[in-house]
Amino acid sequence: MKKLISEFKEFAVKGNVIDMAVGVIIGSAFGKIVSSLVNDIIMPVVTLMTGATDFSRLSIVLKEPVDGSQGISLMYGSFLQNVIDFLIIALVIFLMLKCIVKISSLRQKEEKEDMREEKGPTTEELLIEIRDLLKEK
């Protein structure tokens, strides 16, 4: 039992698990922001364009309710709202990753230039310089 507890402590305290937990929490908050963007900003515009009073309630009635029984409807408005939500999340993640890759490549380029300046000229560059000096004599 002690071995199991110590293994669990080692697992739970590792950096990867903590990073993953932070990512899940931030992802959850990000999901709320995107859902608000879709529900409060984008969907009212779409609703205005479609002329529907509530976009998420758009449906096709397959069977009307009869004698107190429930009717059957395809709730395509709710589905479309979820598709739009997904597309916005995918677009935002794509743009964020694109920015991260760009920043990372710029940072790597700067690091290579810094390393080149610290090292001084390469052996090849020195040999070319020596050759040019010998040609002048």
Results as ranks from 00 to 15, higher is better:
Lys2Pro: 00
Lys3Ala: 11
Ile5Met: 09
Glu7Arg: 09
Phe8Thr: 13
Phe8Arg: 07
Glu10Trp: 06
Ala12Asp: 05
Asn16Trp: 10
Asp19Tyr: 14
Asp19Ser: 15
Val24Ile: 15
Ile25His: 07
Ile26Trp: 03
Ile26His: 00
Gly27Arg: 02
Ala29Pro: 01
Ala29Cys: 10
Lys32Trp: 04
Val34Tyr: 04
Ser35Asn: 14
Val38His: 00
Val38Gly: 04
Asn39Glu: 12
Pro44Lys: 09
Pro44Asn: 06
Val45Phe: 12
Thr47Ile: 02
Gly51Ala: 02
Thr53Trp: 01
Asp54Cys: 03
Asp54Asn: 13
Phe55Ile: 08
Ser56Glu: 11
Arg57Gln: 15
Leu58Gly: 09
Ser59Asp: 10
Ser59Tyr: 11
Ile60Lys: 10
Lys63Ala: 11
Lys63Pro: 00
Pro65Gly: 01
Asp67Val: 03
Ile72Cys: 03
Leu74Phe: 15
Gly77Leu: 07
Asn82Asp: 06
Val83Ser: 02
Leu87Val: 06
Ala90Pro: 03
Phe94Met: 12
Leu97Thr: 06
Leu97Pro: 00
Val101Gly: 02
Ser104Gln: 13
Arg107His: 07
Arg107Glu: 04
Gln108Val: 07
Glu111Phe: 06
Met115Ile: 11
Lys119Thr: 01
Pro121His: 07
Thr123Asn: 07
Thr123Met: 10
Glu125Leu: 01
Ile128Ala: 13
Ile128Cys: 04
Glu129Pro: 00
Asp132Phe: 02
Leu133Met: 07
Leu133Lys: 15
Leu134His: 08
Glu136Val: 08
Lys137Pro: 01
Lys137Asp: 04
